[in-house]
Amino acid sequence: MNHRSETMTVVSPRNLKLFVTGDAPRSKRARANLAEALERIGLDPDAVPEIDLSADPVQTLTFGIFATPALLRTSEAGDTEVLYGDLSERRALERFLALG
């Protein structure tokens, strides 16, 4: 794990946003999967802001996130990428967190 963090460039948690819908099963799984992955690379899961679209639906329109759960990554230049799903595919999530 530490080896990974030493050799890969990973995203900063402050550049991530997790979009969920309350405690829906997929949202709960996404939360857990993301936390696990971040911990694996030595990042603090609590540093990732979470947006509950069921509580604040306007954010859906603001961010253009129409499938949930979704993990939004914003680059320093302002470009965004989205990973949809409950983040259960570990390799896809790790690639996303490792900037591609």
């Binding site: 829906a24 949202s27 639906p57 129409f66």
Partner: peptide
Amino acid sequence: IDARPAPGSRVSGEFDLEGLLAAIG
């Protein structure tokens, strides 16, 4: 509502339309 998936977006696991339905509501 322009609900096109974000360019370059990928998928990891199951997703649903709950967020979209919240917006539509």
